[in-house]
Design a protein around this nucleic acid. Structure first.
Lengths: 224, 224
DNA sequence: ATCCGTTCTCAGGTTGTTTTCAGCAAGCAC
DNA sequence: GTGCTTGCTGAAAACAACCTGAGAACGGAT
């Protein structure tokens, strides 16, 4: 639902601009300013797309892309290259970037590409998220526990996939609200609690053990 | 033996990208930027495949394809069509193109098609898509369910073939709109719903079970 | 110009999903 | 235990998504 985008650039003007632009379009945005933090953030957040500048401290964008690909990560990468660095574009594509954009770029163009890349990717990527005896197929959007098939509404699906992407990790209420309902969620509502309830009901309908546990005062964890 | 590919487009962005992409995959690539140079290059180099944009100076891609075919040239043609030009795709096929791709496209997808087209030497591209008891002949564009023959309008055909190529997988509205209508839809239209309706009516006219199910808030699936 | 098939728009009805709310249960500090 | 906070749950209201029939707009063929 809310696509999550990681922006990697060492120029704060660029990251600021992109962050605001993308957030305004409804994406949830994270930022990294160097090669190593980019890799870390990718592992942490499993973004749906990376906007990656070539010039970076520690190690450059090409190296980041190469490491991700050799590690088997298929997240779409949109590379930002300087106007005159044709060689970089070629290398970028060779190294596993999916598209590139020449700086300076028009906002509209960046948005168009991001959108197109996300849409295409969505069709090709069907992962099988799994934890304990729960499976979630992102292609069919159906969950299984044991042999039982579990149908999910869109929101339930988002929530469960969030949990399954980060098993054993405590997710704060803020993070969950951000990822599933979007940043602009204000004031007091207990939607999240209601939906955790729905999920628990469905996941435990066959008498199975609880998988989503409450961490009082903080949020929830998915673990056995 | 390197396959030789001619890329025809007047946008240097596209030719730049394609040239590097295809060259990296080991093809030898030539470029033309207008209809007449495309014809000249074809005569000169006798490429094994042509990637041909519809919109071109001098005369357009459709015209290039038509002239080649009437001259007896059977070189496989992969047509690049604009986003909202369904009519062009149909015309392209009528005029002798062998496949088409909607811009913007995923690099992977272009490579896959190029490979596939080179492999099957342009003659036997009559696929028979099949799922459950539904068949779709991509040569005659006629569908069958059980023994019943089902005639389809061009749009209905596109839609059904999309579903049959990815059975059991949930296709989001974005993807369907993109692949069938080529539209980057912001505004509200319900064409897609109407056409799903048409397709259902035709597919279920013999009292058969529903094959195209709606996934609320997401899109549709083709499954039993 | 007219016909016919196809595509698209619109409005109303239907159904499933999301949110809210109020009361209850569970955890925690004292 | 008591009192306070935090989280759970069932029901109903509010909302949005989807379907359908009717017809308008379009384009090619005669």
């Amino acid at each position: 639902m809310k696509a999550h985008i990681l922006v990697v650039d060492d120029d704060p003007r660029i990251t600021d601009l992109l962050k605001r632009l993308l957030a305004y379009e409804g994406y949830s945005v994270a930022v990294a300013a160097s090669g190593d933090t980019a890799l870390m953030r990718t592992l942490e957040h499993a973004p749906d797309l990376i906007v990656l500048d070539v010039m970076l401290p520690t190690f450059d964008g090409l190296e980041v892309a190469r490491r991700l690909r050799t590690a088997g990560d298929t997240v779409p990468i949109l590379m930002l290259t300087a106007r005159d660095a044709i060689a970089d574009r070629v290398k970028g594509l060779e190294v596993g970037a999916d598209d590139y954009l020449v700086k300076p770029f028009a906002n509209e163009e960046l948005l168009a590409r991001v959108k197109a890349m996300l849409r295409r990717n969505q069709s090709e990527r069907h992962e099988l998220l799994r934890y304990a005896n729960v499976e979630l197929d992102t292609g069919t959007r159906v969950a299984h526990r044991g042999g039982r098939e579990i149908e999910l509404s869109p929101t339930e699906y988002e929530l469960l996939s969030l949990f399954l992407r980060r098993p054993r990790q405590v997710l704060t209420r803020d993070i969950i609200l951000d990822r599933v309902w979007g940043i602009d969620f204000e004031g007091s509502s207990n939607v999240m609690e209601v939906y955790v309830g729905y999920l628990r009901t469905k996941l435990e309908a066959g008498g199975e053990s609880r998988l989503i546990h409450t961490v009082r005062g903080v949020g929830y964890v998915c673990k056995e």
